[in-house]
Computed example of a mutant assay.
Amino acid sequence: MDPKHLMQLAVIIELGSVTKAAQKMNVTQPTLSRVVKIIEDRAGGAVLRRGRYGVSATDIGARLAEEGREIIRRSERAQIAIQEWRSGLKGELRVGVGPMLAATIMGDFFVEAIEDPPPYSLKLHCEVAARLVERLKNNELDVAVIPYELNRKDDGLYREKLFTEHLSIFVGENDPLARKAKVSPKDLAQHHWISVGAISGLFDVTRETLDRLGLPDVAPIIESSGDVTMTFRMLEKTRSCSMLPFRMAGTFQERFRVAPVDLDVELQARDIGLWTTTTGRDRPEIVDFVERLTVFLQKTVR
């Protein structure tokens, strides 16, 4: 199968139109129609469905188009590599960051990386911690900044602690519990609970914590797997509470009117770690990245 034909098929399916694809690739529509015919002859069946609003992929068409998209992605990455090399960048570092860290402290770290660029390019990925671990295992990432302790076995990965962290209950700044000393877990029973486990890599820690606090009948009214700012907005405006990493969430107190509760029991630690593969930790790019991140955290996380 001609790789160029697969790339052209991918563009046709992405745009849903042979005409639009021809315009985008600066070729004639008959040329693309012939390409589709060649692919269909080779596949032994139709790769496109023609409908009222354009074309869509058949099953085999979708599979072949995905191969075409991968060829396009590889070509684009090769072009980027050339541009980076010409700019003096030697190598790249693929960095995974959990959503909570991305929303709180890591943005400022990468601001410094722009102002004082490293001698390598940075490719950033923001996903939940479990997915970033899988990416590390599959060699799709070089390093991940995520919770140090995860409820899973991670053979072949190396991790080191970046800073200590613990969980805390947050409410809106105007909530009476924000000003009360030694809040009892029972005081939280009538609040709406917002779970942010998916964005913090906390898994079922919210449920476990509620049981430990003697609140087995309380269930989160909302489970968030998106931007943490939504949670803070809900805390500001409603009688709600949420369990969040104390030091990271504290960085939002200047932007949102939220506050930690002075709970009379201590919640579990939730330290933040840097994860790499065992064999990759000594790479010069990773060594440099860790040094920069360590300096940043020493002056930022208090």
Rank of each mutant, 00 (worst) to 15 (best):
L15E: 07
G16L: 15
V18C: 04
K20F: 01
A21E: 07
A22G: 10
Q23D: 07
V27P: 03
E40Q: 13
D41S: 13
D41E: 14
V47Q: 04
R49Y: 09
G51S: 02
R52D: 07
R52A: 13
G54F: 09
T58E: 08
D59S: 12
G61W: 03
G61C: 02
A62Y: 03
A62C: 01
R63F: 01
E66N: 07
E66L: 13
E67W: 05
I71M: 04
R73W: 02
A81D: 05
A81Q: 05
I82P: 00
Q83R: 14
S87F: 04
G88P: 03
G88C: 10
L89R: 11
K90V: 09
V97N: 03
L101I: 08
A102R: 10
I105S: 13
F109H: 02
A113N: 04
P117Q: 04
P118K: 11
L124E: 04
L124T: 01
E127P: 01
E127N: 14
A130T: 13
R131N: 12
L132S: 07
V133P: 02
L136Q: 14
K137F: 12
K137C: 09
N138V: 02
A144T: 08
V145P: 02
V145K: 08
I146A: 02
I146K: 01
K153Q: 12
G156D: 07
L157C: 13
Y158I: 00
Y158W: 14
K161G: 00
E165A: 06
I169L: 15
P176K: 14
A178V: 06
R179Y: 10
S184P: 03
I194F: 09
V196F: 10
A198C: 14
F203V: 11
F203A: 12
V205P: 00
E208A: 12
L213G: 01
L215M: 08
V218I: 07
P220L: 10
E223Q: 12
S224D: 06
V228H: 05
M230A: 14
M230G: 05
F232M: 15
M234C: 00
L235N: 05
K237P: 01
T238L: 10
T238R: 06
C241W: 09
M243N: 08
R247D: 01
R247H: 04
R247Q: 08
T251S: 11
F252Q: 09
R255P: 00
A259H: 14
A259M: 13
D262I: 07
D262G: 03
L263S: 06
A269T: 09
A269I: 00
G273D: 05
G273T: 07
T276K: 03
T278Q: 14
T279Q: 10
G280C: 05
G280D: 14
R281S: 03
R281T: 03
V290E: 06
R292T: 01
L293G: 00
L293R: 03
L293D: 01
L297V: 15
L297R: 05
L297K: 08
K299G: 06
